[in-house]
Structure formats: structure tokens, C-alpha cells
Simulated scan of single mutants.
Amino acid sequence: MAAQCLLLLACVLVLAAAGHSIHIQTLNIFKKSPSNTLASALKKTSWPKDCSEVSAGSPSGIYIIQPTGLHPIVVYCEMNVTDGGWTVIQRNWQSTEITWAESWSTYKYGFGNLHTKYWLGTEYIHQISKQKVYQVRFVIWDAANNIRFADYNLFSLEDESHGYQQRLGTYWGTAEDAMDSDDPRNVHNNMKFSSKDRDQDTYRGNCASHSGGGWWYSVCYSVRLNVRGGITWGSLCNGNCKASAILIKPALYH
């Protein structure tokens, strides 16, 4: 039976390598049935804790990781940018078919297609980020399809009981510092995550309900990446960004 389970896992990896659509929910069965045989077989295998532990020289693509204390999950690893090892936690296109107007529980465990547009899951992002000291890179394709980035040398998410509050470090990059601001109406640093059914912003209404998707809102945003159309990054592209991605990896210096 264990051999059959490992064969099933091998099929998942072959499909991923062949470019087929493998959805994030593929391994959620481990969370729901941790005692099943496939989960037991996987527990006997040593998986990288994040994409930084994937072997150097490996291609970008879909990998299985197992953050400390969590079941194995499927992620997309970006191995070709700035020495590689980036775990991609979000990707969106202006022309996406995903509505992004999802519930708290859907954002918690993730949705979408790892090959195209998706949200990894706030719980999984938290579990990864608590392992080490992490940095984050926000990649923005502006209205002219130029690639810009905003790096923050520290990144973490608090647990669900603290609202998945986001904490960012010092900015550096070619896009403006749109995630942090002295204006409390536009700040996203130190904000809790909000969804259409869980309002944790500082606005009198629900930013997630009328702004299109879950995010670390204040009153309401200068950055809006989890949205169908209308991708925004400060004054760089106000609703007409072409695409976005969010990548994390262990910080080099801390």
C-alpha cells in the first residue's frame, strides 16, 4: 500500500512537471485525514521546509514542501530570480478569471491554479514565515508591462488568532514603497487580513467587500493585488497593473 501511495505521489509530480494544472487543494487531504496511508508515506519522506531548501540549479516549477509542524503542501518555487529559492505565495493577472471575492476560510487554505493565478493560503503563509526570519518581494507588471519590484527585508504573518497581521521591514526596490505609509488611510504594514466575511480593517465599512478581495486593508488601500481587474500599486499603476506576484524566502541578513 505504501508503494502505491508513493506511486500516486510520483504521478502528481510527473503531471506538475509536464505542465498540467495541479491545484493547491491536491494535498489538503492530509489536513483532513492525517492518518491515511498516503499521509503516512509522505511523513516518512524528508521534504524541504520552503523553496530555499530546494537544490540549487533546480528549475522553477511546482514542488512539495513541508513547513515545520505542517503536513506537506504543494507550492510554486521561483528558482531563477535573485539566486532563486523563492516561495511564491500569490500570483495574479489583470485578465484573471478568478473573482478573488472569497471567504475567510477559502483565503485561509488557498485557491487557484499554481501554474497561473492563485493565493497560497494565509495559514500556510503564516506557517512558512514562522520558521525563520523571512524577506518578501512584491513584483508588479505596470500598465506598460514593465517589471518593478518592492523588497522588504523582513516579512511575517501572525497566527489566525491575531488576524494574520502582516509585519514588514525596510523597503528597497524599483516600485514605490506602497505597502507602508505615514498616512494611516493607505498603510498595509502591521494591518490584519480582511475578507468579505471577516472585517478587520480600520474603515467604518468592509474594505474587502467593496474593494474586490481579501487583503491587509486599512482605509482602504494603496495596494490591491487580490482583485479581479483593478490591480493597484500606489501611484505606479492605479487599477491598471498588468500582473502581480508575491515571493518570500529566508532573509540574508537579520
Rank of each mutant, 00 (worst) to 15 (best):
S40H: 11
T45Q: 03
I64P: 02
S58P: 15
Y63P: 02
S55P: 09
L27F: 15
T37M: 08
I29K: 13
W47Y: 10
K32M: 09
A56S: 06
L42G: 02
S55V: 09
D50Q: 06
A56Q: 14
Y63A: 00
L38W: 04
C51W: 10
K32L: 15
S55E: 14
S58N: 12
D50W: 05
G69S: 04
P48W: 00
G57M: 00
W47L: 05
I65W: 01
F30K: 13
S40K: 10
S33K: 15
T68F: 05
P34A: 00
K49E: 06
C51A: 06
A56P: 11
K49S: 09
E53A: 08
A39M: 15
P67M: 04
I29M: 07
H71G: 07
S55I: 13
T37D: 13
L27T: 07
G61I: 08
A41E: 10
E53G: 11
K44R: 13
K44N: 13
T37H: 07
G69C: 02
L70E: 05
I62Y: 00
A41Y: 12
D50K: 13
T68I: 09
L70S: 12
T37E: 14
S60Q: 07
K44G: 08
N36P: 06
Q66A: 01
L70A: 09
N28V: 15
L27P: 03
A39C: 11
S58V: 04
G57E: 01
S46E: 14
S40F: 15
G57L: 03
D50H: 12
P48V: 00
K49D: 11
A56K: 10
G57S: 01
I64M: 01
K49Q: 10
G57V: 00
G69Y: 03
S60C: 04
G61T: 07
K43S: 13
Y63V: 01
S35T: 14
S33C: 12
G69I: 05
P59G: 06
D50F: 08
I64K: 00
K49Y: 14
G61A: 12
S58R: 04
P67K: 02
S60G: 01
S52A: 13
N28G: 10
S35D: 15
C51M: 09
